[in-house]
Every structure is written in structure tokens, then in C-alpha cells.
């Protein structure tokens, strides 16, 4: 009976370790160090601000972020732009509002409480402008893909100058090492000096990919810092409480033979 229990335990261990990254048609992504990973992880303000710049200048022409509002850019745990800055940034976009007294819809500059403006009126417009493939919304993209931030980062950098031999690509399909079946409908968008960072950081491909991925990670988990902060306190509290209960329990049972 002891033998079977041991077999059981070792089987358990091997099964759980095999749940690791599903191989097959996916290339293992790169694993850079992220400031926000791990139990004590935090976002870096400058990184998120640069990431927002990359999103706005590079990605937002095709990808919406419907779940974000401009006011989110001010809140704690995020890029933490100032209110004045965000009001100005938001005002650069126009949203449809109304109807007015004549029953007409009209355009007005975006304010803090507005959601991020989408590049498309609807999904169909997005599809037709991109050869039938709708550029997905990026609000929770980091949580919507196995591999998360590592995968997205790798994908952005996974394009090759030359398609390897033996691979034929349809129109509007591109080669990317990290994409499923190494094919993806999105062209390379991250190029050296693609943006001019306002804080003067050199806009290398790696830098831009990092920054925008961190921004997307924040967008998917804006409460990450608060969550880990509270979590730390909760676990310490529970550990102390378990010690107190352990000794209380011991004391209660001391006089009973069991």
C-alpha cells in the first residue's frame, strides 16, 4: 500500500509539471524580466507612459481599447499622467455625442470620462479595412493569450526580414516566428525610431516592444499593484493567525487523550 501511495504522489508531481506551456505549433516565447512580475512586482510609470505613446502613435490606427477610459491614465497604479496632461491628450480625439436639439448627432472633443476612441465605427469597418481580419481590441489582450506579456512582446519582435524557404504566404499574411503556425495577418509595426519618445529614451525595437507590452499589461490588470500590496498583508495576517490558532488548538486539546 505504501508503494501505491508513492506512485500516486510522483504521478501527481509529473502531471502538474507537464501542464507547462503547451508545445505543438507554438514557438516558446522569449522571457524578458518584467518589472510587474512576481509577488512584489510593480509597473514603472515611465515605461507605461512610453507604452501609451507607442499605442497611440503606432497601434491605435487599427486596434481599439474599448474598455479603457481617458481618466484611467490618471489613476494610481497606472501611467499616472497628470489630469491636465490627460485632458489635453483626450481633447485630441473626437467622440460622437448627441443628439442635439435638432435631433442630430455631432462630434466633440473627448473628455476624461469618455472611453478610448476606437479607430473603427464597428467591426465590419475594421474587417474590410484589414483584408477581412479584424484587429482585435487590446484592452485585455495580455490576459487573452496563453503566454501573456511574454507572448505579445515576442510576437511584436518576431518578424523576419526574409520569409524562410518553403513557406508560402497568402496576401495579407505575414511570417512571424511566434505566431500560431508562424503566420499572422498583422504586418510588422515596430520599427526602430517608429516614435520619438517625449522623455528622450532611444526608441529601439526592443524598447518599443517592451513599453507597449507593459502598457497593455497594465491595461489588462490596472489593479495589479493594489492587488499585490493587499495580498502581501493578507497572507502575513493569515500566517500569524494560523500560528495563534495552532497554539490555541494545542492548548484546548492538551487535556484530552486523542
Amino acid at each position: 500500500m505504501l508503494k501505491i501511495k508513492n506512485i500516486f504522489l510522483s504521478l501527481l508531481l509529473s502531471i502538474f509539471t507537464s501542464f507547462a506551456f503547451a508545445a505543438g505549433e507554438m514557438h516558446e516565447p522569449m522571457h524578458p524580466d518584467w518589472s510587474f512580475q512576481g509577488p512584489l512586482g510593480k509597473f514603472e510609470r515611465a515605461e507605461l507612459q512610453r507604452g501609451y505613446q507607442v499605442y497611440t502613435e503606432v497601434c491605435s490606427s487599427c486596434h481599439s481599447m474599448d474598455l479603457l477610459s481617458y481618466r484611467n491614465l490618471i489613476q494610481e497604479g497606472g501611467p499616472e499622467f497628470s489630469e491636465k496632461q490627460v485632458k489635453a491628450m483626450a481633447a485630441m480625439f473626437e467622440v460622437e455625442a448627441g443628439p442635439d436639439a435638432d435631433g442630430e448627432m455631432f462630434m466633440r472633443p473627448a473628455i476624461l470620462s469618455d472611453k478610448f476612441v476606437s479607430p473603427w465605427k464597428n467591426e465590419q469597418e475594421g474587417r474590410i479595412s484589414n483584408g477581412g481580419a479584424y484587429p482585435p481590441d487590446l484592452s485585455v489582450m495580455v490576459k487573452a493569450r496563453p503566454g501573456g506579456a511574454d507572448y505579445l512582446y515576442s510576437l511584436l519582435l518576431g518578424y523576419e526580414d526574409e520569409t524562410p524557404e518553403g513557406i508560402t504566404l497568402d496576401d495579407g499574411v505575414y511570417y512571424n516566428i511566434y505566431a500560431k503556425n508562424q503566420k499572422i495577418a498583422m504586418p510588422q509595426v515596430i520599427y526602430e525610431d517608429g516614435v520619438e519618445y517625449t522623455d528622450g529614451t532611444a526608441a529601439t525595437e526592443v524598447q518599443m516592444a517592451r513599453d507597449v507590452t507593459a502598457f497593455l499589461a497594465w491595461s489588462a490588470e490596472p489593479k495589479l499593484e493594489e492587488r499585490k500590496r493587499i495580498g502581501f498583508k493578507v497572507i502575513i495576517y493569515l500566517i500569524i493567525l494560523s500560528f495563534l490558532l495552532y497554539f490555541t488548538n494545542k492548548r484546548i486539546w492538551r487535556d484530552t487523550s486523542h
Partner: peptide, 13 residues
């Protein structure tokens, strides 16, 4: 409480 430590580990981290 021990169960809650595992629970909290998942929830927060």
C-alpha cells in the same frame, strides 16, 4: 485559515 492562505495565494498572486 490554512486553506485561506492557499486561497489568498491564488486570489492575490
Amino acid at each position: 485559515v490554512v486553506f485561506m492562505i492557499i486561497f489568498a495565494g491564488f486570489v492575490f498572486f
